[in-house]
Design a protein around this nucleic acid. Structure first.
Lengths: 345, 345
DNA sequence: ATTCGAAATGTAAACGCTTACAAATGCAAT
DNA sequence: ATTGCATTTGTAAGCGTTTACATTTCGAAT
């Protein structure tokens, strides 16, 4: 019963195996450099002592942490879960660990979190969307920490991004559903300040309205935070102040699910009385009744590609290259065409 | 344009402020010890250089990281999100940072993650449920890392826990809904191996059956992983092999939402044709139609209390003390009483 | 003016690794 | 046996903090 007072160190292992600390270190980081015999001896000692390398010491000496940080707006819903999962898996495969931090949509919390991650030695950072204080980008550049933006693609931005064109995706989608004859349009978006994804999706809807000969300013828009309840409340507000609305486009599935609930609360049938759409295509989109017509985002591919690119940026010490991913439209049951009856109402 | 090649260190700050490194360190950790004048000088230098303390160096020297690790089974759904959010907020308030790691329900991944968190110097660990390889507990004891179990309460276990009695909660709930006259009972649970929460909830249902004079073995149980689809599939399987089932109790809201979807797919009305219940009371429970009758878990309080207790264990170097939290029953629309018509079916 | 204790600051030794460089070892060719 | 080169191993200097201990400074009390 070796009731050691403290955790074993490299030194302890070296002593027990009868080798130098350098050899133990090599055994951990570059096993091929050792004789099979010494390697076995060291491994045995490690095992016997239950040794785990001290991360802080290691990263201080090596000036590398093999850690990548990701800052996401929220963990509360599944929006980022899928993509992040894929990101993590790919990182794992490449020998990196992911550190996740959530800002709970408080933009001012982001800077603090980024500094924290950098102080912890993150070799690279993944962030969502382009919008943030330029000072943050300056800081990151000064610290020489590679950053990759995701969930957004914008070649005009200086920071490399792997994502999709939120504006175009929403435009194409909106054009398609509006072609069903809708003239009175409402939209529920999450707060667009400091959120290019939200902003671009709104712009996409306005683009589509123009295509259909509608005045973009007539879009009845309401911006709210990011929960089901917000979606439900916003929907009710929208329908009260504009009862002749025939379709409500939501900036995300979460909001759309809330909107469907709002419709149920008001005794409105979807899509018979009003059509509702989402964006993201998370699992949730299939549990409502009716199921959501929405825009499918390639979460998995996006996460995977982001991991590959960020690791490449780190290891090859090169600038990141942006890539645009395609979104697709998923038609389920929440959208209907305008019928005579309805237009008359 | 001081295009420094490398990030500024304590030394740089000290030099610029004309003080020793010890003083700069004090300025960061114990500002009151300094003259207002020197403090200002140091702060100015820190600001000017854009200095951020190096976390690895700090934690190596201080042998403290002010970091707490949490290992959760999944980030994919909101089950743990609320509690973890509260946990994080409380930790923040006390000056600690949270590192989250998800096992994706792969129990063998947990040990690796725990070792990783320990190697990273986590001052304490939060884990979900009691079930895990005893070797893990041994390792943690040897490393002297405090552990707190949550989402489960069991005074019989050696590891302190802050949570609720899964078995009793499910028993009380099941007794209540079964009192409505149900005799043919199905249950969908997530895999119970290595998952005391699932196991206890199943036991709770069996307890309730006995109370109602039903043979516990007649419970038609099906265990699946943890997604909506699993819930839907399980429900369909269950109803096919046992069409006269009148109520399906689910081990979690996620599964229940899946089950509701399964019912819709089969053309069954809830609760008219079959009743369905959940467990957890996450937001999701209110977006389905009908809304879920479920067991409310005090996520927020649980997370908050867990944070307070774990920090106390660390700072006061004492054993943790377990606490049992109460759950409540939330009746919404997914359960109906058995009518003559139905019993005749 | 001195003295003394408290408060502020400085000095330097850890902390547990990695890695450049030096030394030792092994093996093949002579 | 010797030599030379490649391979394996060892030595020791950092890495950027914190903190015990030593020293200096300051102000109040004499």
């Amino acid at each position: 019963m070796p009731a050691n007072e403290t955790a074993p160190t490299l030194d302890d292992v070296a002593r027990m195996a009868g080798v130098s600390t350098a050899t133990v270190s090599r055994c951990l980081n570059d096993p091929d450099k050792l004789t099979k015999d010494t390697r076995m001896r060291v491994l045995a000692a490690i095992d016997k002592l239950g040794y785990t390398p001290n991360f802080a010491a290691r990263s201080m000496a090596a000036k590398r942490t093999f850690t990548i940080g990701a800052i996401i707006p929220t963990m509360e819903n599944a929006i980022f879960a899928r993509g992040l999962q894929a990101f993590q898996e790919e990182l794992d495969r490449r020998g990196y660990t992911l550190l996740v931090s959530s800002t709970a949509y408080k933009t001012d919390a982001e800077e603090k979190q980024i500094r924290n991650l950098v102080a912890r030695g993150a070799d690279g950072l993944l962030v969502i969307g382009h919008d943030r204080d330029p000072a943050i980008y300056d800081y990151l550049k000064q610290q020489r920490v590679p950053v990759l933006v995701t969930w957004s693609y914008d070649k005009a931005e200086a920071t490399p991004s792997i994502g999709f064109d939120n504006r175009a995706a929403m435009r194409v989608f909106a054009e398609k559903v509006l072609a069903l004859g809708h003239r009175r349009i409402g939209m529920i978006s999450s707060t667009s300040a400091q959120n290019d994804r939200a902003r671009m999706r709104i712009a996409g809807v306005r683009d589509a309205m123009e295509t259909h000969g509608l005045e973009p300013d007539t879009l009845d828009l309401i911006e709210v935070p990011y929960t089901f309840d917000d979606g439900a409340d916003a929907f009710i507000t929208l329908m009260r102040r504009n009862p002749e609305t025939t379709i409500v486009l939501c900036g995300s599935d979460v909001l759309a699910v809330g909107a469907i609930r709002g419709a149920r609360l008001m005794g409105l049938r979807v899509p018979d009385d009003v059509s509702i759409t989402g964006f993201d295509d998370i699992e949730l989109a299939q549990v409502t009744s009716p199921e959501l017509t929405t825009v499918h985002v390639p979460h998995h591919t996006m996460g995977q590609m982001a991991a590959a690119e960020l690791v490449a940026m780190i290891e090859e010490k090169r600038e990141g290259v942006s890539q645009k991913l395609a979104t697709t439209i998923v038609e389920r049951g929440s959208v209907a065409a305008i019928t005579k009856t309805k237009t008359g109402g």
